[in-house]
Simulated assay, not measured.
Amino acid sequence: MALDYDSALAPNSYYDQYFEREAVKILPGEYFVTPRDLLIVTVLGSCVSVCLRDRQSGIGGMNHFMLPGNSDEGFGPVSSSARYGVYAMEVLINHLLKLGARRHQLEAKVFGGGCVLRGITANNIGQRNVDFVLDYLHTEGIELLAEDLLDIYPRKVYFFPASGRVLVKKLKNLHNTTLLDRESDYSLRIRKAPVGGAIDLF
């Protein structure tokens, strides 16, 4: 499936039989933006996802990220955690703008931040992710239309950017450890890797 022109860091594309449309699955640290009537899917534990779209054009996208660092660092203006979160948000926003979205027309729905990773529960990472993303959207003046945050369950999120519709399924029984393994590995990676890449701020 040729999705290169509107994709960003999300190579997992497939045809969703249930919803009868092209779909893209994003993993921790990935995001995807599109001007087309696609489905974007992710599964969240402690990470958060922001579903962001231009309310007029329907250009939309989703990210999937977690703040690095520890609970003592917080997410103030100079913390590495804040820099990482801002980077994750600005990369998503900038790709939307490149496709023709207007920043003043952006609206958001946010999900995740569950307390599901036993190894990093002490850092309260889910709460910190939620606090960061809500503060970011408020500071940037991006309207928050809906949220499903915290709790103890992972979530599967289905986002239809063209319409803005989001479906959320709470996963009360995990059949394997794939989600927990992915987020644990991702958490270790972002602690070791500095934020990189150029961002154009608008």
Results as ranks from 00 to 15, higher is better:
Leu106Gly: 09
His138Thr: 13
Leu39Glu: 01
Asp37Asn: 15
Val116Ser: 15
Glu73Val: 01
Thr42Cys: 15
Leu92Thr: 04
Leu38Asn: 13
Phe19Met: 10
Ala88Asp: 15
Gly141Trp: 07
Arg118Pro: 02
Lys98His: 06
His64Val: 07
Val91Ala: 10
Phe65Asn: 04
Ser49Tyr: 00
Arg53Gln: 13
Arg21Glu: 14
Ala88Gly: 03
Cys47Tyr: 10
Ala122His: 08
Val130Gly: 01
Tyr84Pro: 06
Pro28Gln: 13
Glu140Val: 04
Leu144Tyr: 06
Gln56Thr: 11
Asp135Asn: 14
Gly113Met: 04
Pro28Thr: 13
Thr42Tyr: 07
Gly114Cys: 05
Val86Ser: 11
Thr42Gln: 10
His104Thr: 08
Ile40Leu: 10
Asn129Val: 02
Gly45Gln: 09
Leu137Val: 10
Leu106Pro: 01
Tyr31Ser: 11
Lys109Cys: 05
Asn129Asp: 14
Gly141Asn: 10
Asp131His: 09
Ser80Val: 01
Val133Trp: 00
Leu39Trp: 10
Ser46Lys: 09
Val116Asp: 12
Glu73Asn: 06
Val50Asp: 12
Ile120Leu: 04
Arg55Ile: 04
Gln56Gly: 02
Gly114Phe: 02
Glu30Val: 00
Tyr87Leu: 06
Glu90Trp: 14
Arg21Gly: 08
Leu38Asp: 15
Ile26Ala: 03
Thr42Ile: 04
His64Tyr: 07
Ile120Tyr: 14
Val116Lys: 03
Phe111Asn: 08
Val43Gly: 02
Ser57Cys: 03
Glu20Ser: 14
Glu20Phe: 03
Leu137Ile: 08
Glu147Tyr: 09
His95Asp: 15
Arg118Asp: 14
Pro77Cys: 02
Lys109Ser: 14
Gly45Arg: 03
Thr139Gly: 03
Asn123Pro: 00
Gly58Leu: 05
Thr121Ala: 12
Leu27Arg: 14
Arg55Glu: 14
Val48Ser: 08
Val91Asn: 09
Ala122Pro: 01
Glu140Gln: 15
Leu137Arg: 05
Gly141Glu: 13
Glu140Ile: 02
Val130Ala: 12
Met62Asn: 08
Ile93Lys: 13
Cys115Ser: 13
Leu38Ala: 07
Asp16Thr: 11
Asp72Tyr: 06
Leu106Asn: 13
Val43Ala: 12
Pro35Met: 09
Gly74Arg: 03
Leu99Ala: 10
Phe32Thr: 05
Asp72Lys: 05
Gly126Gln: 06
Val133His: 06
His104Ile: 03
Leu39Ser: 02
Asn70Leu: 03
Ser79Ala: 11
Leu117His: 08
Leu99Arg: 11
Gly74Ile: 00
Val41Met: 11
Tyr14Thr: 11
Tyr14Trp: 11
Leu92Arg: 02
Arg55Val: 05
Ser57Val: 01
Ile142Phe: 06
Asp135Tyr: 08
Ala101Thr: 02
His64Trp: 02
Asp131Ile: 01
Ala122Thr: 07
Asn124Cys: 10
Ile26Glu: 00
Leu67Thr: 00
Asn123Ile: 01
Cys115Gly: 05
Val24Ile: 15
Lys109Tyr: 02
His138Ala: 14
Gly60Tyr: 03
Tyr31Met: 13
Asp72Gly: 02
Gly112Phe: 00
Tyr84Asp: 10
Asp131Phe: 05
Val50Gln: 09
Arg118Gln: 11
Leu39His: 07
Leu38Pro: 00
Gly76Arg: 05
Leu67Phe: 10
